[in-house]
Structure formats: structure tokens, C-alpha cells
């Protein structure tokens, strides 16, 4: 049994301790926005936020997460209104097949929360999610535009 705080709600799930958080969220909680890509921490498709930090959930056993840690998935990120990263992603038509994009958006939103003005090099080294469709040029442009937007909204 594990107690988790997901998207602002507490819930108890009856799972084996070694179950990766990804599969707890997908199969037990029923939120399928977070994707399975590799299961070994390589691709980033399963990225979600744990206390605001982008975390690859496929390689994180549920026993390593405590109830006071706030887990946010894509379903929680733009629940009230779309996150600026989601808005920019729509504007630039970033997604191709879309399968990696949830993880991308979670990685990017976390990056921008920690580094409001990332340099191009920061973006290139921090966003290491795999996109087999090859959306990287628009991902790069999207991070830069989202950073500008978020700075303007604050100012």
C-alpha cells in the first residue's frame, strides 16, 4: 500500500513496492498521459514532476516516493488553464506523432520553473528527451518563446 499525492489529491494504491511510479499512475490510478517509452530512464517519455522537479517515473519505484511529495502529471499541469508551454507548443505546431510530447512538456516546464532564462546551450543539454519524429528544432524554439512569454507575464 502506498499513499501518494497526485495532482493535488491524496490517494492510496495497493501495489508492490518495486512498482515504478509510471505504472502506478498509468495502471492503478488510471492516468495515461504519462507515457512508457523505454522503462530504463533513457527517453523521458515518462517525465512528470516530483516537487516541481522533472523526474523519469519509469525508473522510480513507488516506495521511493512519500505522501508529502507532490506529484504532478500532464493531467495536472494544465488542469486549470493551459500552461504557457502547452500554449506555445500549440502555437508552433511542435508535435508530430505527439507520443514524446507530454514528457517534453513536463521536462520543459520544470526547466523554466528553475531557470527562467535558459541559454540555448542550457536548453540543449537539459532537454534530453528522445523524439523519434525529430521535433527538436521546434522544441528549441518553443522553449525560447515560452521563456519570453512567462517573463512578460511576470513583468
Amino acid at each position: 500500500m502506498a499513499r501518494l499525492n497526485i495532482n493535488g489529491k491524496f490517494l492510496d494504491v495497493d501495489v508492490e513496492e518495486d512498482t515504478p511510479l509510471l505504472w502506478v499512475i498509468r495502471d492503478h490510478v488510471g492516468l495515461t498521459g504519462t507515457k512508457y517509452g523505454c522503462g530504463v530512464g533513457q527517453c523521458g517519455a515518462c517525465t512528470l514532476h516530483v516537487d516541481g522537479v522533472a523526474t523519469r517515473s519509469c525508473a522510480l519505484p513507488v516506495s521511493a516516493v512519500t505522501a508529502d511529495q507532490k506529484i504532478v502529471t500532464i493531467e495536472g499541469l494544465g488542469a486549470d488553464k493551459p500552461h504557457p508551454v502547452q500554449e506555445v507548443w500549440a502555437e508552433l505546431d511542435v508535435a508530430q506523432c505527439g507520443y514524446c510530447q507530454v514528457g517534453m512538456i513536463m521536462a520543459v516546464s520544470s526547466l523554466l520553473a528553475q531557470n527562467a532564462k535558459p541559454s540555448e546551450d542550457d536548453i540543449r543539454s537539459e532537454i534530453s528527451n528522445i523524439c523519434r519524429c525529430g521535433t527538436y528544432p521546434r522544441v528549441l524554439a518553443g522553449v525560447q518563446l515560452a521563456a519570453q512569454r512567462m517573463a512578460a507575464n511576470k513583468g
Binding site: L31, G33, G78, A95, I105
Partner: peptide, 27 residues
């Protein structure tokens, strides 16, 4: 023009084959 099929790719609501859930379903 922008794609017609973008919005649900950005908020996790697009159900891919891997995401299907049916009552009583096994994996």
C-alpha cells in the same frame, strides 16, 4: 496551416493504443 490533431497531444488526453483501458481488461 496548423495540424488538426494537436490539442489532445499536449494535455495527455489522446488515447494511443498503449493507453486503452476497458472494463475487465487484462494486459
Amino acid at each position: 496551416l496548423k495540424r488538426l490533431d494537436t490539442r489532445d497531444k499536449l494535455n495527455g488526453s489522446l488515447v494511443y493504443g498503449m493507453d486503452i483501458r476497458l472494463p475487465g481488461m487484462l494486459v
